[in-house]
């Protein structure tokens, strides 16, 4: 029984690993191909099946006048916008989530759950129709084509996720610990910062990671709300998608764009394990 379970477990993990890795391996080998080795039939292994070349990678740093896209500046733009927007969203979202988890709100028929749902419902609207209103809104406050403008929009995209996740995590932190802290003479803010927050680290980490991911991979708003001054990474990469689809450089860019987040994933994993403090709370 136990052996069978372990066998199944590893079997499943291996299958899933293959499934997860396969497209990346395909992207990796494709990134070294050229037009002919993509379109001449299916090939897998460089040097054996096809003659590898670095063109797919080179275009990522060449200037447009030489047929490249030069993703270095957009790379940093993306990092800046994503991190700033995530940070603001996490701070605001955590505060709201704490309120929704610990206090009771009532205004007519609107209760805590409805307010929480209000936050998350902001993500339901298909972004397409928001393009014109957001465009007009940012243009009226003069923030079109700027990093600040994008941050403003991303806060709207990211904060609901932070609130939604944090409410769940705060709910799991026993109320007694804030009460103890308050009795011990902390004011509510100290209780929140010094006692509740450290006990919600897994939640914060997860919420932070989701904010970073959703900010990093957004294409639509970055596309509609910028012109020439500011370019984010996905928008810049898509600029390679010409009449002839350049499978090779898109593959290379997919790998390049996922790289920094893998580092984030390692950090997340580390804190996730470390933050497992809930068990210690009495």
């Amino acid at each position: 029984m136990n052996k069978l379970y372990i066998f199944l477990k590893y079997f499943f993990i291996v299958v899933w690993t293959v499934f997860v890795v396969a497209p990346f391996l395909w992207a990796l080998t494709t990134s070294f191909k050229d037009f002919q080795s993509v379109n001449g039939g299916v090939t897998y292994i460089p040097w054996v099946d096809f003659e590898p070349n670095l063109e797919g990678w080179k275009v990522l740093i060449k200037s447009p006048a030489k047929g490249g896209v030069d993703i270095i500046e957009p790379y940093f733009n993306s990092m800046f916008v994503t991190c700033t927007a995530s940070l603001i969203s996490i701070i605001l979202g955590t505060l709201s989530a704490y309120a929704l988890s610990r206090y009771t709100f009532k205004a007519g028929f609107v209760k805590n759950n409805d307010i929480t749902f209000f936050f998350i419902s902001q993500r339901i609207m298909p972004p397409i129709v928001l393009s014109i209103p957001f465009f007009l809104f940012l243009s009226s406050i003069n923030l079109l084509d700027s990093l600040t403008g994008l941050i403003v929009v991303y806060i709207v995209l990211l904060m609901p996720i932070a609130v939604w996740i944090m409410v769940d995590f705060f709910n799991k932190v026993p109320r007694e610990i804030d009460e103890t802290a308050l009795i011990d003479g902390c004011n509510p803010y100290q209780a929140f910062l010094k006692v509740v927050l450290p006990n919600s680290i897994p939640g914060l980490i997860v919420a932070g990671m989701f904010c970073i991911i959703f900010g990093w991979i957004d294409f639509f708003f970055a596309f509609i709300l910028t012109f020439t001054e500011v370019q984010l990474l996905p928008v810049k990469i898509v600029a390679l998608n010409s009449s002839v689809t350049p499978w090779w450089s898109l593959s290379a860019s997919a790998l390049v764009s996922v790289a920094p987040l893998i580092i984030v994933a390692f950090i997340v994993e580390r804190y996730l394990s470390k933050g497992n403090l809930s068990g210690a709370i009495k």
């Binding site: 990469i237 998608n241 593959s251 997919a254």
Partner: peptide, 10 residues
């Protein structure tokens, strides 16, 4: 963590 617009092409 992959950008859907790009990853779907792959």
């Amino acid at each position: 963590m992959t950008t859907p617009v790009i990853m779907t092409v792959i």
